[in-house]
């Protein structure tokens, strides 16, 4: 089956499940939104899909991408891109080096540079390759973070409340920018948020585990 498929996925800490097992299919080019109050394991769910779950937590269930099971694969071989609320640009690298970080290995130098420059043009930041990311505005940094994730050629995109830090007018623009790029590449997108105004596509509520505490 193409796209991102979650099959009874759950995350537990110390034997206690954070939410009821979740099954979900996001076909290529479509968006699903996962809603739920903060602190109920949304970010842990995304980490389980990426393979970057904290060692103190454990995941159960299955994840597959375009028919390929991901369980047991290290994160660097899953080809899942993720964006967080913070841009998380590497502070020690230039904007260009951040963009080039995830480029597939084996590309020629000229090709790498061409892809970085094309991404900068897409992000409306031509000529920014040598800049220090700390000197960019919040909106510019967010766009660089998206382009960095896309240059790694992911097969799915996870969004962990990526619009929360931006001002309201900027937020709508950046949301359209992200979803537009994802749709153009036919990526399945899983968006996590607690803000109904940010939701897109099919909305799924993350159900708290029956005996879970009131925080969720």
């Amino acid at each position: 089956m193409s796209g991102l498929l979650l099959d009874a996925l759950s995350v537990s800490v110390g034997g206690r499940r954070l939410f009821a097992p979740l099954s979900l299919h996001v076909p290529r080019g479509e968006v699903a939104t996962l809603m739920g109050p903060s602190g109920c394991g949304k970010s842990s769910l995304l980490a389980a899909i990426c393979g970057t779950l904290d060692p103190a937590l454990s995941a159960a269930g299955r994840v597959s991408l375009d028919g390929r099971p991901l369980d047991g694969l290290p994160p660097e071989r899953r080809r899942i891109g993720i964006l967080f609320q913070d841009d998380l640009l590497f502070p020690h690298l230039s904007v260009g080096a951040n963009l080039a970080f995830g480029l597939p290995p084996g590309l020629k130098r000229a090709e790498r540079r061409a892809r970085v420059e094309a991404a900068l043009r897409d992000a409306e930041l031509p000529g920014f390759a040598e800049r220090d990311p700390a000197t960019l505005s919040g909106g510019q940094r967010a766009r660089v973070a998206l382009m960095r994730a896309l240059l790694a050629e992911p097969r799915a995109l996870l969004l962990d409340e990526p619009f929360g830090r931006l001002d309201a007018p900027l937020r709508a623009r950046f949301r359209a920018f992200v979803l537009g790029h994802a749709a153009a590449r036919g990526l399945p997108v899983l968006l996590v948020t607690h803000d109904p105004a940010e939701a897109a596509g099919r909305v799924v509520r993350l159900a708290p585990e029956a005996e879970a505490d009131a925080a969720c």
């Binding site: 290290p74 994160p75 891109g81 502070p91 994730a149 790694a152």
Partner: peptide, 26 residues
């Protein structure tokens, strides 16, 4: 920030590259 090495891994970097290219410089 534990998310920086995780982002690097999701961008396709092996644990060795995450350590050498992200953690050590930071």
């Amino acid at each position: 920030d534990p998310r920086l090495p995780r982002v690097a891994a999701c961008l396709g970097a092996s644990p060795a590259r995450v350590f050498l290219a992200v953690k050590l410089p930071l």
